[in-house]
Computed example of a mutant assay.
Amino acid sequence: MQSLYEARKSIMDASKGVWANPSCEVLVQEITATLSQHCTAAEKLAAKGGDMWSVDRMAFMMVMTDMRLSIWLLVAALQNKLGPIIRPRNLPIDIARLVSAGQV
């Protein structure tokens, strides 16, 4: 969970110069909102005793998978908008292609 909070804080710090472009502002806000939403969902599972090592591991892993896919889609959209200045690591090429083709 700590790494999710650190990622959210890093995005918020790095995004301060992006606000000149309203569509980029919306994408960055969506990224931070998505991280917040999934952090909350993971915290709720953890409060019930569900985490990566519990019997309810599948529910926790689904929250994390959904978060990754949501963030990758948003990052791919940002990359599509801004071009090669955005160089995400681990972005699945299939997601980048779908976003580039306007299929998502």
Results as ranks from 00 to 15, higher is better:
Leu69Gly: 04
Asp13Ile: 11
Tyr5Val: 08
Leu4Gln: 04
Ala41Phe: 04
Thr32Phe: 00
Gly102Gln: 11
Ala33Arg: 03
Leu45Phe: 02
Ala46Tyr: 10
Tyr5Glu: 06
Asn21Lys: 14
Met61Glu: 10
Met62Arg: 13
Thr32Lys: 06
Ser10Trp: 00
Leu78Glu: 03
Asn21Ile: 14
Gln29Ala: 07
Met67Lys: 06
Ile71Trp: 02
Glu6Tyr: 00
Ser54Phe: 08
Ser70Met: 02
Val55His: 09
Glu43Lys: 07
Leu74Pro: 02
Ser15His: 03
Leu73Lys: 14
Thr40Ala: 13
Trp72Asn: 02
Asn90Ile: 08
Gln2Val: 11
Ala77Lys: 04
Gln79His: 10
Arg68Trp: 02
Tyr5Lys: 07
Ile71Arg: 00
Leu4Phe: 05
Ala76His: 07
Asn80Tyr: 03
Ser23Glu: 14
Met67Glu: 04
Ala41Asp: 10
Pro84Phe: 15
Val18Asn: 04
Gly49Glu: 08
Val26Lys: 07
Leu74Arg: 01
Ser15Asn: 13
Leu98Gly: 09
Thr65Pro: 06
Ala76Pro: 05
Gly83Val: 03
Gly83Asn: 02
Leu78Gln: 01
Leu74Tyr: 01
Leu91Val: 11
Glu43Ser: 10
Met61Val: 12
Thr34His: 04
Ile85Arg: 08
Ala14Ile: 10
Ile86Glu: 06
Ser15Gln: 07
Ala46Cys: 11
Gly17Val: 12
Phe60Pro: 01
Val99Arg: 01
Arg68Val: 04
Pro84Thr: 14
Ser54His: 10
Asn21Asp: 14
Leu78Ile: 08
Ser36Asp: 09
Trp53Ala: 15
Ala14Leu: 07
Ile93Trp: 05
Trp19Gly: 14
Pro88Ala: 15
Pro84Ala: 14
Met58Gly: 09
Glu25Thr: 15
Glu6Phe: 02
Ala46Val: 14
Leu27Gly: 04
Thr40Glu: 15
Leu73Gly: 08
Trp53Thr: 15
